[in-house]
Amino acid sequence: MAGNNPNSKPMNLTLKVWRQKNSKAAGNLETYQIKDISPEMSFLEMMDVLNEDLLLKGIDPVAFDHDCREGICGMCSLYINGRAHGPERGTTTCQLHMRKFSDGDTITIEPWRAGPFPVLKDLCTDRSALDRIQQAGGYISVNTGGVPDANEIPIPKTIADKAFDAATCIQCGACVAACKNGSAMLFTSAKVSQLAMLPQGQVERKTRVENMVAQMDKEGFGACTNIGSCAAECPVGISLENIAMLNREYIGASFTSENV
């Protein structure tokens, strides 16, 4: 049933899906045919249809991460036709709709590919390395209570807006998956710049960048060679400027930090 596009016809598709029993098993691409896919469906609803079909045939359904299905939780993470989150710019997998595909298409679906993101099963990967980078310093050390009135910290609107833009990162890891080096610079820089821009973040400004970068390196993420695929594939438009800011913060900190 079409919601708004009366010309939309159901599609038949060929799917090549990465199947891997668990983190230790070898994986391979399996081919599945899928019929009568409405262009109004989301990509993950198409995956639901596939899974219902597989289940009834007695085949283990394809495991993939997803939760909110509105582009904000950052859990969905499919590598579609060689691109993180698929062909539509600025769009998470869950917000991608089948109207972006055509009848007869072959779609290849893989998990995020990066050393620090081991495959858990099929299309699910372990992205806890990103949490550990945040734990290394992605916060302002204030306890609950005993803080000043909110309006005692005036922040210019332009700064607040820029900090907000950096803060919208959804921690999906597409930047890492899109990078040929498997670098997490865009991810790390988003939090570093958000807090470096805000007055509240000044006190821990130097140690924060040092500790987060150190953790990033420890997790085995690659170096940044300024290609920019990360920002091009980022579903929420985190800007490359953040990486420039991270570098500036890091170099500044290494000259003046007391952490030596």
Partner: peptide, 17 residues
């Protein structure tokens, strides 16, 4: 107050409040 202290970037007016 707590959220602002944590660095939550709420919407602001041009005067910074």
């Amino acid at each position: 107050d707590q959220c602002v202290a944590q660095g939550v970037p709420f919407a602001r007016e041009y005067g910074g409040l």
